[in-house]
Structure formats: C-alpha cells, structure tokens
Amino acid sequence: MKRSIAASLVFLTVLIILGPGIAWAAGGGDVSEIVVVADTRVVKSGILKYFADTYNSNIFVFAIWCVVLTAVYGAILGVVMDLIMSRTGLDLKSRKIVEH
C-alpha cells in the first residue's frame, strides 16, 4: 500500500513538473499572447452564461470544469455507445484474426 502511494506521489510530481512541456508539444505550436474576454452580454442561456462568466472571472475553475466535463462526457458517451453497440448482436469482446 505504502509503495503504491509513494509511486502515485512520484508519478503526480513528475506529471506536474513535466506536464506543461507535454501540453506545449501536443498543442502543435505557439499560441499568440492575446487576451480574450467572453462577451457575456449576448449569452442568454444559463449554463452558457455561467461558463462565459467563469472564463472571465476565474480561469482556473473554468479549466477544472473543462477537464472534468470532457472526461465525464467522454465516459458517459462511451457507456451509452457500449449499450447501443451491445444490442447490435456483434461479439465485441473477442476477435478471430490473430497475427502480429
């Protein structure tokens, strides 16, 4: 248990230290240094207005929302599509072709 906690801590530390480099590399290039402000005057819907406000006032909370919602929505879609695909009658747990 202690070993796995220690390993997780090391992993997280490495992630925090090296993460920006990964994101920079994965992004495909530089992002110009412009300041963007979401125009909340034209947003009517409650949820969209909340996101636009959060973007303007607290970018950290906005970033957390983006990651959490992306992961949750991805997982929900994965489960829903899994349910739909399981009704097609296809065998979705094995494959006949075995090769390198």
Binding site: A23, V31, A63, C66
Partner: peptide
C-alpha cells in the same frame, strides 16, 4: 486531458 487543462488555463478552449 493534461493538454486540455493547460490550454484551458490559457483560455484557448471552446467547451
């Protein structure tokens, strides 16, 4: 996921 977080921090994401 990590890339999404850092780009969100830079404000360069349209959720």
């Amino acid at each position: 996921l990590y890339g999404a977080f850092t780009y969100s921090l830079k404000g360069r994401i349209e959720i």
